[in-house]
Design a protein around this nucleic acid. Structure first.
Lengths: 144, 144
DNA sequence: GCAGATCATTTAATATATTAAATAATCCGC
DNA sequence: GCGGATTATTTAATATATTAAATGATCTGC
């Protein structure tokens, strides 16, 4: 059965690369009972402090309706708190709890050292090149 | 709020790149009422003909339990048929229906032309370079 | 030939993704 | 200040992801 395609499957390759990288950090997340999505949310909160859910959704790459459930479970597990923005009652503001913050810091350093390892293994030049090509690809496909 | 990270978020970047590429092909899929996963399955069947579910799972990057549901809906929608391998009754063999095959061929050429466009826009050299770097990254992270 | 180990797939339970529609607060022109 | 347009988030319904456990068929040594 001959293939209908002459090019490589780029979305699949990107997915595979992402899974390969995540395979290293996932065990650390699971040790602390965090899902991938919960970690992405915590990471955003660790970088920016109190953030409205719209921005969390954009930065953590989670759609609104999914985020509602993710945040509900994170609140249940004492990772975050939610409150209305008093300036604009349409907005919900999310903030990490002390417990959530502790996790961010602990996991950040673990993940950072994985990047150090990657930079050593692949080479700094190639890693930079990869970032650049991905940026170009994204800019091409979604001009703004 | 200062960031805890000195490196870029590689998994996020890969996810974003993948979404950017898929944003172009998704509308064509949805026109034919296909989900991303259903398309990945059809693509495998288009390349290899009749395939056992284990291989479908590997090549389409779908975990077994998810695949069960995906295949059930595809069977319901007359895209595929399932049957037991008479040689080894543990295995289930999947094959595209005529309708499924027609969709593969129609969508393949549409997607192929998107790759042609991408190769023009980004440049053949850079695209090849990107493939190579992703391959290296995958090989590094999951040595076998 | 049979018991246990192994392998392929499915079931079960919970979490997340996707799309459309609903809700609820703010804005804006008048 | 009132009513329609806009914006932010949530609800609803269905599909997919994830993990562990169950089922069912095959192999393997004895």
């Amino acid at each position: 059965m001959a293939s209908t395609f002459t090019h490589r499957n780029l979305p699949r390759l990107l997915l595979q690369a992402r899974e390969a990288v995540m395979a290293h950090t996932r065990p650390s997340l699971r040790e602390h009972a965090l899902s991938d999505q919960q970690w992405r949310v915590l990471r955003v909160l660790g970088e920016h402090g109190a953030v409205e859910t719209g921005r969390v959704a954009r930065e953590a790459f989670i759609l609104g309706p999914s985020l509602t459930g993710v945040l509900a479970r994170m609140e249940r597990d004492d990772l975050i708190t939610r409150s209305r923005d008093p300036e604009d009652q349409r907005r919900t503001v999310v903030e990490a709890t002390a417990h959530g913050m502790k996790l961010v810091k602990k996991l950040s350093s673990s993940i950072e050292s994985h990047y150090q390892w990657l930079e050593q293994s692949l080479g700094k030049a190639k890693l930079t090149q990869l970032y650049g090509l991905l940026d170009e690809l994204i800019a091409l496909e979604q001009p703004e």
